[in-house]
């Protein structure tokens, strides 16, 4: 095992790390940076629970080596809310539309949706379904997640249906 020294932008902040060359991006984020929002649901790219953005694109962090992000930008679910906890519209929509149950898949779902909306700001429900088909959820039946993504795409800001 060789240790590799890398520098990259993590949620907007420049960071450096020295990691063994076999370490995945997911392991580095969770263990080295203690960002445990991204989850390991399977470890081989089938469930999407580990989804983060690398250069704005959704990737399975469990399949990518940490060294690969050298010089790149990485965004995790922890980097979505502003410093004073102002939530991203997607986070707000997930809360308000009941898109969260056990919540294990939620960070990955939100990051996948983030990438989807960046590419297609007004997706149809069908495009949401196809665009997010790499993220598994066992609790919700996906319906409320589709609603939440559709709602977030419409506003780009919060809508307070709840009291």
């Amino acid at each position: 095992m060789i240790a590799v020294k890398i520098s990259f932008l993590l949620n907007g902040d420049p960071v450096t790390a020295e990691v063994p060359d076999q370490v995945t991006l997911l392991e580095m984020l969770r263990e080295h940076f203690e960002l445990r929002g991204a989850k390991e649901g399977c470890g081989y790219g089938e469930c999407g629970s580990c989804t983060v953005l690398v250069e704005q694109e959704a990737v399975n962090a469990c399949l990518m080596l940490a060294a690969f992000v050298n010089g790149k930008s990485v965004q995790t679910v922890e980097g979505l809310a502003g410093k004073q906890c102002r939530l991203d519209p997607l986070q707000e929509a997930f809360v308000e539309h009941g898109a969260v149950q056990c919540g294990f898949c939620t960070p990955g779902m939100i990051m996948s949706a983030k990438a989807l909306l960046a590419e297609n700001p007004r997706p149809s429900r069908d495009q949401i379904r196809r665009g997010m088909a790499g993220n598994l959820c066992r609790c919700t039946g996906y319906a409320k997640i589709v609603e939440a993504v559709a709602a977030a795409s419409k506003r780009g800001c919060s809508c307070g249906e709840s009291s």
């Binding site: 969770r30 960002l35 445990r36 929002g37 991204a38 989850k39 390991e40 995790t76 679910v77 922890e78 979505l80 809310a81 906890c85 939530l87 986070q91 997930f94 809360v95 308000e96 009941g98 969260v100 149950q101 919540g103 294990f104 939620t106 960070p107 939100i110 249906e161 709840s162 009291s163």
Partner: peptide, 22 residues
């Protein structure tokens, strides 16, 4: 009878909920 959000959803959408894995 109200459509209120789940109380812990706020933690969960921010990746703050602590599972055994975490």
């Amino acid at each position: 009878g109200k459509r209120l959000p789940k109380l812990d959803a706020l933690d969960k959408v921010q990746g703050k909920a602590v599972y055994i894995h975490d």
